[in-house]
Design a protein around this nucleic acid. Sequence first.
DNA 1: TCGTTATTTCGAATATTCCAGAAATACCGT
DNA 2: ACGGTATTTCTGGAATATTCGAAATAACGA
Lengths: 111, 111
Amino acid sequence: MKLDDAAARLEALGNPTRLKIYRTLVRAGEDGMAVGRLQDRLDIAASTLSHHLKALVGVGLVTQTREATTLICRTNYGLMRGLLEYLVEECCAESKRCAPAKAPIKLPKAA
Amino acid sequence: MKLDDAAARLEALGNPTRLKIYRTLVRAGEDGMAVGRLQDRLDIAASTLSHHLKALVGVGLVTQTREATTLICRTNYGLMRGLLEYLVEECCAESKRCAPAKAPIKLPKAA
DNA sequence: TCGTTATTTCGAATATTCCAGAAATACCGT
DNA sequence: ACGGTATTTCTGGAATATTCGAAATAACGA
């Protein structure tokens, strides 16, 4: 992942409203969640929600698929994992202090 | 870590210039790097650099200590690790799809 | 086709970010 | 105290973000 892409994704997550949206979608699991249900759950204006979702979709962190009249939103797990791997590398690259952690963080594999 | 804190830190990292600064500081290791050297290295105006450093220091991701006339900047490894752990939890919380990854991401322990 | 539900786009107000030059401040060595 | 180096603050302008309500669009069911 390029630095500019990583920055764009971090920026997308770097807003409380968007981070709440993302977290809610992660917790919805592979079934995803309709835009309307997100709106009920988070209690924000539909236009605001649409705006933020666009930002998350724009950087690839969220995908959308139609299902009849509703749009189902899902997180792109692989991309998030890539972002985390990028950050871990950035936290460690060219440093001599890269011994394995006592409690290494384990990421779940993609569903 | 609270959601708002995580969002603030992600936002701080979510700018290409600041991410470059952060990456440079990580690579500088525990010796850190003076503001002036960062300026030479990244070729940005001193005021701009100061502005961005303030943002990183403000959310705790970078610390500064004086050393004679120069200010040494260092990354706060523990805080970054906390942020990554928060993200991993957000990526997995309340989900049934949390089997261990084939290649779990290992974070180095603090220096 | 008509009505209903779901979602996005438009328009506008307000707020924030980003950048850099100039001036100010902080600290040291002499 | 003075001069020099290092860094921050001030200022301001251009660009972008955030929010909402109203209107527009999309997709179905009857």
